[in-house]
Each structure stands twice: as structure tokens, then as C-alpha cells.
């Protein structure tokens, strides 16, 4: 390096080269840089010694601590399970009434239900559990299969029309599609069913509808239309509709049939989870009823 200039401002030497007007100083690397080089390298060395780090051909260095991310998370879950066991096994074992009576058990129920419902059920039943087209409201106190705790627990366990081997089956026949009833008859029975929950219609149509109803529908929805919880046939006298109580929606139901699918949660949620949800739903239903 022969042709060296000095930068008048800093007094440092340049490297003696110039590229289209750009020059470089030959300033030495600041100490701070070396300091941080050392700190980061030493830290890295320590980590490499402690943790799994360097690959060998068919294995790798395991590190002095012998940690592995999988074991770590398994451990943390085992610990969490153990801590939650205080209440979770009680919730799993005790009947619902006893849980309700015990504020110490209701605290985790109330803590847990919101996210549990939000992540698993809200997609269908809505975040307020009020249902929507095709998905029943769970807070209207009108239950397809019954609103007692055991029934709800069972519904959650096996689902409805789901892939679970013991699932509940609920089948609304496709009267139109399968040619059981002609179009007009379906229109007529729609009028009749609507009249059950108080909608007005000409008396002669109601009478004709009642006849069609008695031969085709009563076996499932009952003579009086109050439904049959054993087969999940809904009450047609109340004003709660899964698929809608309007002319078109109801025609659609009877013409094409319905087979709602409620997933089975046995493999995804624990007994305690399902009981928490049951209590939560019953409480929500009661709140709304008031």
C-alpha cells in the first residue's frame, strides 16, 4: 500500500485506492466489535456444549443437559395435568349437581368453558351458542335429545350422525326427493306445521295438512308434534327452528330431508372437558330462559 492519503477530518489513513471518487479509511476495527464477537461466540460455545447441536453422520451431539424439545413439552404437560388434577378428576367423576354446589369446582368450569367452547363449538353453534341456520341454538332450552346432563354428555361423546361407532342417528326423511309426498302435499303440511306454533292458515288447508301429518310425520314427531327425544326428532310446536320456520326453509326440510352432523368429541375432548361444556350450556340455557 504505497499511495496513502490521510483523511483531513479524522486523520486516518486511506487504503490508497479510489473508485470513481470513493475512498476508504483503513480505520481499525473498533474494540466494541471484537468484544461482541467474543461474547456471542462464547455464548454459542456454551449453548453447543449444553444443548443438542452438532450433527455427526448418523447421530448428533446430545449436549450435557440432555434436553430435547419433545421431552420438555411432555414434561410441562404432565406437570399441568398434575396441577389441574385437583379439580379435573373431581369434575370428571362427580355428578353435575355436586359440581354446581361447589364453588371451588365451578371456578375452573367458568374459567375454562369460554375458550373451550370458542375453539371447538363456536364454529357451528356461534360464539354466543345461539346457533344459526342448520345448527341448533344451545341456549333456547329446546333440546333435540333432552337437556339433562347425562344426555348432553352422551351427545357430546358420540355426536349425531357422526363417524363415532355409537353415534346418535337422526334422520329427517326426504319426503319429496324420495317421492313419498307430492309437492302440493308438502306445501300443505308446511302450513299445518306452522299452525302448530301459532301461525294462521286457512282452516281447510290445516285440516288437510293434519291428515298428511298424522300418516307421515307423527311416528317421529309425535301425534301432537312435540317431538321425540329418543330419535332426536325436534319439537314442532315451539318456535325454535334449526333450519328455519319460513315457508321455503321448511319446504326444503321436508322435500330434501335433513341429517345434521354433530361431531363426536370423545377422542378430542376429555370427560372433564365435556362435563364443563355441559354445565356451561345448561347454565347458558337457564340464563336465556329467564
Amino acid at each position: 500500500m504505497s499511495v496513502k492519503d490521510r483523511d483531513p477530518l479524522t486523520g486516518h489513513q486511506t487504503t490508497g485506492h479510489e473508485w470513481n471518487g470513493i475512498t476508504e479509511l483503513n480505520t481499525r476495527v473498533p474494540r466494541a466489535v471484537w468484544f461482541f464477537v467474543i461474547v456471542t461466540h462464547v455464548w454459542a460455545l456454551v449453548v453447543w456444549v449444553l444443548m443438542p447441536a452438532w450433527p455427526l453422520v448418523t447421530t448428533y451431539t446430545k449436549g450435557l443437559l440432555g434436553t430435547d424439545q419433545r421431552e420438555e413439552v411432555q414434561e410441562s404437560i404432565a406437570v399441568a395435568n398434575a396441577i389441574r388434577d385437583d379439580w379435573s378428576s373431581l369434575i370428571a367423576d362427580l355428578p353435575v349437581d355436586e359440581i354446581r354446589a361447589d364453588p371451588a369446582l365451578m371456578a375452573p368450569v367458568n374459567d375454562t368453558a369460554h375458550a373451550l367452547f370458542g375453539d371447538n363449538c363456536a364454529g357451528c353453534h356461534g360464539s354466543d351458542a345461539a346457533g344459526g341456520p342448520g345448527f341448533p341454538s344451545l341456549v333456547d332450552d329446546a333440546w333435540l335429545w333432552g337437556g339433562d346432563a347425562d344426555t348432553i354428555m352422551e351427545t357430546l361423546r358420540v355426536g349425531i350422525n357422526a363417524t363415532h361407532p355409537e353415534t346418535r342417528y337422526a334422520q329427517m326423511l326426504a319426503f319429496g326427493e324420495q317421492g313419498i309426498l307430492p309437492r302440493d302435499d308438502i306445501r300443505t303440511v308446511v302450513d299445518y306445521v306452522q299452525s302448530l306454533s301459532g301461525t294462521g292458515a286457512p282452516a281447510d288447508r290445516i285440516a288437510a295438512g293434519a291428515e298428511i301429518y298424522a300418516t307421515n310425520c307423527a311416528s317421529c314427531h309425535g301425534e301432537d308434534g312435540t317431538g321425540m327425544a329418543e330419535i332426536g326428532a325436534p319439537n314442532l310446536r315451539d318456535d325454535f327452528w334449526i333450519y328455519g320456520g319460513g315457508d321455503e326453509a321448511m319446504f326444503e326440510t321436508i322435500w330434501g330431508g335433513r341429517q345434521g352432523w354433530m361431531p363426536a368429541w370423545e377422542d378430542r375432548l376429555t370427560v372433564a372437558d365435556r362435563k364443563i361444556l355441559t354445565i356451561y350450556l345448561q347454565d347458558r340455557a337457564k340464563e336465556t330462559a329467564q
Binding site: H41, W54, P55, D68
Partner: peptide, 25 residues
Amino acid sequence: LPHWVQTLGMTFSVMLLVPSWASAG
């Protein structure tokens, strides 16, 4: 991804800070 590769990724990322800041500086 196996843990060992993650360790390498983490440590080299931190060591990388020094040359990065050296160029910004």
C-alpha cells in the same frame, strides 16, 4: 425439525448480529 438444527440456527443468528451491526455501523 430436530432440536440440534434449531440450536445451530439460534446460535448462528446471534453471532450474525455482530457483522450485521458492523456494516450498519
